[in-house]
Computed example of a mutant assay.
Amino acid sequence: MINKIVAIQGNHPSKLNSETDTSVFLAHEIQSKNYKIFYYDPKDLSVINSKVIASGFFIKFNYKDKKFFKILKKQKLNLTKCKFILIRQDPPFNLEYISATYILDTIKDKVKILNNPTSIRNVSEKLYSARYQKFMPSTIFTQNISEIKNFFKIHKKVIIKPIHSYGGNDIHLLNKFNSKLINQFIKRHDHIMCQKFLPKISKGDKRVFLINGQVCGAISRVPKHGSFLSNMSKGAKPINVQLTKTEHKISKLIAKDLKKENIFFAGIDFIDQKLNGDINVTSPTGLKTLYDLSGVNLAKIFWKELKA
């Protein structure tokens, strides 16, 4: 009998906002089915005598308490003792992230890991969208300054963003070509994504939740006044929303493709019915917000689909 343990590889709970955090929401749901939650940071992952060991703690979540978590017991755990492992730390998708996926690769046949560590490595959150460019605003991925200059000449207003960042960090809207800024940006981030600016972002984007190859729901996030960033961490306001036929059709196609790639849970974003090119597979968020807005509990669907 496998222990009823779910391990979460994530940022320390004290850094999380319980009102919006998806990891806490998923943990809280499976806890109600008598599963124990074991929490560890990726830096506390080791391979000792061919075993994958994490130094972490058992934890209990409770939304009713002011401090929403209680650390029950610190210990080292052989991760093959778990029923599931959730990879939930924030990017950046850096070498530490990649090393953690290599370590977890060694036990993925013994314990169900979500999302699959090999798949996370293969499905680059921005570059994967290159295969869906017909559904996107005009976009290039490059570190060639003359390609960016040509792109800018055509589109006049351009968004530039790093390929391996997250949460609306390091995103710039360029109204004029600034070679100094772009050169510094490339120096820091290597390949970058340049995209034609869509002014309708001021009305909000749509975040779509994909679970096990199915389109399960969506929320909209409206940037605060004067901003073009729709991330809630950047002050955007979430609202309830329905998908258009076009958005649903594209979402369904991507959901099917991601399932083939062994991606169980993902989030994709639309602006003005166009895919914005962020295919969130490392640590998708928004489930708690959807629940608060609509009463739809996708954490139940998540665990049901896993046959927990």
Score class of each variant (00 low, 15 high):
Leu72Asn: 09
Leu258Met: 11
Lys237Ser: 13
Glu96Ser: 05
Asp44Met: 02
Leu290Arg: 08
Phe152Asp: 06
Lys73Tyr: 14
Lys288Ile: 14
Gln184Arg: 15
Ile254Val: 08
Leu293Asp: 02
Ser55His: 05
Thr106Trp: 07
Ser146Met: 15
Met193Val: 02
Ile154Gln: 14
Ser233Asn: 15
Asp109Trp: 06
Ala236Thr: 02
Phe265Ala: 10
Asp65Gln: 09
Leu290Asn: 06
Pro42Phe: 01
Pro92Lys: 05
Ile192Arg: 00
Ile171Phe: 06
Asp257Leu: 07
His225Val: 15
Tyr291Thr: 12
Gly217Leu: 01
Lys274Gly: 01
Gly235Phe: 04
Thr101His: 00
Asn150Cys: 12
Leu293Arg: 09
Leu287Asn: 05
Gln143Pro: 13
Phe177Asp: 08
Glu19Trp: 13
Lys43Trp: 02
Lys149Pro: 02
Met136Ser: 09
Thr106Tyr: 09
Ser55Arg: 01
Leu293Asn: 08
Asn169Lys: 15
Lys196His: 10
Ser233Gly: 15
Lys112Phe: 07
Phe61Ser: 01
Asn262Pro: 08
Asn34Gln: 06
Pro238Ser: 11
Val296Phe: 05
Arg131Thr: 11
Met1Pro: 02
Lys249Glu: 03
Glu19His: 14
Ile98Asn: 00
Phe197Asp: 01
Asp272Leu: 05
Lys134Pro: 14
Asp90Arg: 09
